[in-house]
C-alpha cells in the first residue's frame, strides 16, 4: 500500500470538492432561508435528480445535438481558416504586416460583441451560433500557428537548406512539425472560446440548445434545471480540455521544454 504522503495531492483535492458539495447540500438544514430565497435555492441532490430525469426522458437529446453541432462546425471552420492563415502569416512578412492590425484588434476585443450583428445577419438559427463559435475559436488557432512558425529555430532551416531542400520541403520537414505543439495548445484555448460561444449564443432567443435550456429555466426560476445545463457544459469542457492536455503531454516525447501558450 502506498503511503498517505504520495496520495496527499489527490486526497486533499478530492476532500475539498466533496466538502464543498456536502456543505452546499447542508445549507437548508443549517440556516433558515428566507421564503424568497427558499424558492430559488437548490441543492446538489435535487440537481442530480433533475439531471437523471431529463436524461431518462430524453428531454436533453435534441438540445445536446444542436449544441454539439454548433460547437463542431464552428470549431471545424476555425481550424480550416486559422491554421492555413497562421502558416501563411508566419512565412510571409508582407501578409503579416497587412493582416496584423485586424488580428491584433480583433484578438483583444471579445468577439461576443459581434453577437447582435451576427444574429441580425444569420438569424436566430444555428448559423449565428456557428459564426460566433468560429469568431471566438479562430484567433487562438491562428495566433498559435503563427507563433509556432515564427519560433522555428533558424539553424534547423539552414540545416535542411544545406541539403538543397525546396521551400515546400522546408515547410514539411521543419516548419509544420515545429508548430504542432503550438497548434495543440491553441486548440485547447479554442475549445474554451468555442464553448463560450455556444453558451452565450444560445442564451439569446435560440429556439433550442443547451444554452437555451439554461436561459429558459432561469426565466421560469427553475434553478435546478439551470444547474443541470451548467454542469453539462462544465463536464464537456473538462473532458475536451483534458483530452487535449493528454495529447500535449504525449508531444513532450520529443519536446522537453514546456510549450508557451498565448
Amino acid at each position: 500500500m502506498r503511503g498517505y504522503r504520495e496520495r496527499e495531492p489527490f486526497i486533499l483535492g478530492a476532500a475539498v470538492i466533496v466538502l464543498l458539495i456536502a456543505l452546499w447540500e447542508a445549507v437548508p438544514s443549517l440556516v433558515t432561508l428566507s421564503r424568497g430565497m427558499a424558492l430559488f435555492f437548490t441543492t446538489p441532490s435535487k440537481v442530480a435528480a433533475t439531471f437523471w430525469r431529463m436524461l431518462v426522458n430524453g428531454e436533453l437529446n435534441r438540445h445536446l445535438y444542436v449544441s454539439g453541432l454548433e460547437f463542431v462546425v464552428g470549431l471545424g471552420l476555425a481550424i480550416l481558416v486559422g491554421l492555413p492563415l497562421g502558416l501563411l502569416m508566419g512565412r510571409s512578412k508582407t501578409l503579416d504586416a497587412l493582416l496584423d492590425p485586424y488580428v491584433n484588434a480583433l484578438n483583444a476585443t471579445p468577439r461576443l460583441v459581434f453577437l447582435p450583428l451576427l444574429i441580425l445577419w444569420f438569424g436566430l438559427g444555428i448559423w449565428s451560433k456557428i459564426m460566433i463559435v468560429f469568431a471566438g475559436a479562430v484567433f487562438p488557432l491562428l495566433i498559435n500557428t503563427y507563433v509556432g512558425v515564427r519560433n522555428v529555430n533558424r539553424v534547423l532551416i539552414d540545416v535542411v537548406r544545406s541539403f538543397c531542400a525546396s521551400e515546400r520541403q522546408i515547410m514539411r520537414i521543419v516548419v509544420v512539425p515545429n508548430s504542432v505543439p503550438y497548434i495543440v495548445a491553441g486548440l485547447r484555448l479554442a475549445i474554451g472560446r468555442a464553448m463560450l460561444g455556444v453558451v452565450v449564443g444560445e442564451f439569446f432567443g435560440a429556439p433550442e440548445g443547451l444554452g437555451h435550456v439554461i436561459a429558459e429555466a432561469a426565466s421560469n426560476y427553475v434553478v435546478d434545471k439551470v444547474f443541470v445545463g451548467v454542469l453539462i457544459f462544465m463536464g464537456m469542457s473538462l473532458v475536451l480540455t483534458m483530452s487535449v492536455k493528454k495529447i500535449e503531454s504525449n508531444l513532450t516525447r520529443w519536446r522537453p521544454e514546456e510549450t508557451k501558450t498565448f
Binding site: 539553424v155 534547423l156 539552414d158 537548406r161 538543397c164 520529443w254
Partner: peptide, 20 residues
Amino acid sequence: TGPGPERAMVFQEFGLLPWR
C-alpha cells in the same frame, strides 16, 4: 552558387530536428 551534394555541414548548435 548554392548548396550542393558535394558539401555537408556539421553545425555548432547541432541543428537536430527535435521531433525526429
